[in-house]
Structure formats: structure tokens, C-alpha cells
């Protein structure tokens, strides 16, 4: 009985029991988005595009995208938007406070799909956060990719994330960075206005050679994909990062199921050709 007990205990600890992470840095990114750097007990060992289940013990747990590149150490970086009970509580936390962390979970992006190709990143709002975990390793191996373009859009200048990072990427990452807002709302803004779809028809693009990684609010996907397809980009060359409600992260709780796929295991990153027969995916 003892061996069996340890077996269930071990499986439970590998699945539903979070490890404790200590917050070592907190920084405001916008009025509602805050950056957190967390040191974990064990190495995170994540791939770009994966997510973790973050909990404030006694309050709840939610899936949060990882924003740092896959470094292999025990550092976890996230940008968390204040939208609900849990995220509001996380925003109350300071350096030295603890978070429960499970994961990493999900399929994520594979760099193999991007090597030797032109790469286009399209980020809408908070979508820049998970995409950053891919942009960082891509830039690190800059020589292994063709042209790299990032289109980053958000509602207004005050909502732009990773401002300093975008500046640096513009000047010394060997990447075209197109920064857009839906509207300046009378705030100072020296970049463009418009939707993230708008630069796509004007881009010089080798439709055969390009690979696109796409992350943003649900409404963005349909339009961006349509625009890309008009340029001759095939659905096999487009990767999307989807958001769903998740309670377990391991394909059990049923919340993230879209048709026959589980977002938490099969995704959240999908090759769009795998979703084209799944009407609910982009709704």
C-alpha cells in the first residue's frame, strides 16, 4: 500500500500541485498590465508559446502565457493584465511574495518551423506577450532566418507593451518593427495608426517563404488570416496562439476543448491548417 500511496502522491505532485515561485521583480507596463519575474524552485524548461497555470493559493488559478525566451533556467516572466478576481489579486503582490506555478503546458511553437524562412509576427494587444517568447530566441539566432517583421498593434499609445524592448528591436535586432495603435486618443505617438491587418497588403512578401506567428484577441484572427491568404500565404504557413478557459492544463477539465482538440495539450499554438476544419476555433 505504501508504494501505491507514493505513486498517487507523485502523480498528483506532477500534475495538480503547484511549485512555489518567488516574485523578484514587478514593473508596470501599462495602467492595467504588470510585468512579473518569478524565480522557481526548479528549472522551467519551456518552449516558446507555452503557458503556466498561475495560482494565488486560496483564491484560484488561471493559465498565463510565458513571455521570456526558453533559457532553460528557473526564471519565469509574465505580463499579467488585470481583468478578473485572480489577476487583480496578483497585481496586489510585490517582490518577495509567492505565486503557485504549474507547468509549462501546451505545445508551443517549434523553431524548426521557422528556420530558413521569412518570419512575420503579428501581435494584437496582450498577444505580444506569448509572441515575445518566440521573438527572443529567433533574434538570438538571427542568422538562421530570412526577413523578420513584427506588426504590433494595440488600442492606444498608453496600452502598448514592452515599449523599451520594441525600441531596441527596431534599432538593433535586424527586424522590421511596425508599431500601430487603433487610435492615438490625443496621446503623443510617433508611429502609425490602423489595424494590424493594414500593413500586410503593402508588405514586400515572398508568400512561399514566409511563416507567420499570430497572437491577439479572438476578433483579430479572422481578419489577419484572410488578409494573409489574399497575399497567397498558405494555411500551413500560419501559426495561431489561441486563448481558452482552462482549469487543469492537462486535458482533463474539458474547458478548453474546441471540437476534438484540447487547447491546453494540442495548443495553444496551432498550425492554422489544423484548425481550418474547426469552425469554433476562431469564433
Amino acid at each position: 500500500m505504501n508504494t501505491a500511496a507514493s505513486r498517487y502522491d507523485r502523480i498528483a505532485r506532477e500534475t495538480f500541485i503547484p511549485q512555489i515561485g518567488k516574485i523578484v521583480e514587478v514593473a508596470d507596463m501599462t495602467a492595467k498590465d504588470r510585468f512579473f519575474r518569478v524565480v522557481l524552485e526548479n528549472p522551467l524548461g519551456h518552449r516558446p508559446g507555452q503557458f503556466v497555470m498561475v495560482s494565488v493559493l486560496g483564491l484560484g488559478e488561471a493559465p498565463i502565457s510565458i513571455s521570456n525566451g526558453p533559457t532553460g533556467d528557473n526564471i519565469l516572466e509574465m505580463v499579467i493584465r488585470r481583468i478578473g478576481r485572480l489577476t487583480r489579486a496578483i497585481h496586489e503582490l510585490n517582490v518577495g511574495d509567492e505565486l503557485g506555478i504549474r507547468g509549462p503546458y501546451g505545445s508551443g511553437f517549434s523553431l524548426d518551423d521557422f528556420y530558413d524562412r521569412d518570419v512575420l509576427f503579428v501581435a494584437g494587444g496582450l498577444g505580444l506577450v506569448p509572441l515575445r517568447s518566440l521573438i527572443v530566441p529567433v533574434i538570438a539566432e538571427r542568422g538562421r532566418f530570412g526577413d523578420i517583421t513584427l506588426i504590433s498593434g494595440c488600442r492606444n499609445p498608453a496600452e502598448e507593451l514592452y515599449r523599451d524592448q520594441l525600441e531596441r528591436w527596431t534599432t538593433d535586432a535586424g527586424m522590421d518593427v511596425i508599431r500601430l495603435v487603433d487610435s492615438t486618443e490625443n496621446m503623443p505617438w510617433k508611429f502609425g495608426t490602423g489595424l494590424v491587418t493594414e500593413p500586410i497588403p503593402k508588405m514586400t512578401m515572398d508568400a512561399e517563404k514566409i511563416v507567420v506567428a499570430l497572437c491577439g484577441p479572438p476578433v483579430m484572427y479572422k481578419f489577419v488570416i484572410k488578409t494573409l491568404m489574399l497575399r497567397g500565404v498558405k494555411d500551413t504557413q500560419i501559426f495561431v496562439d489561441l486563448e481558452r478557459r482552462m482549469k487543469c492544463g492537462v486535458g482533463k477539465c474539458g474547458h478548453c476543448q474546441i471540437n476534438n482538440i484540447y487547447c491546453c495539450q494540442d495548443g495553444p499554438v496551432f498550425r492554422f491548417s489544423d484548425l481550418s476544419a474547426i469552425p469554433e476555433a476562431l469564433q
Binding site: S55, L57, E61, K247, C253
Partner: peptide, 25 residues
């Protein structure tokens, strides 16, 4: 078998638990 997960903190504010309950699509 779908389920929802909820946390609860005891009134001592130092201990608590996480439970799952049946959910329904």
C-alpha cells in the same frame, strides 16, 4: 467528467484548500 476548480482560504488566512466540482458544458 468536466470539472471546475476553486480555492478556499480558511479564516486563519494561512491555510486553505483547492477543490474541484462537477462542471457542465
Amino acid at each position: 467528467y468536466c470539472f471546475d476548480v476553486n480555492d478556499d482560504m480558511n479564516l486563519d488566512v494561512t491555510s486553505g484548500n483547492r477543490t474541484r466540482t462537477w462542471d457542465a458544458c
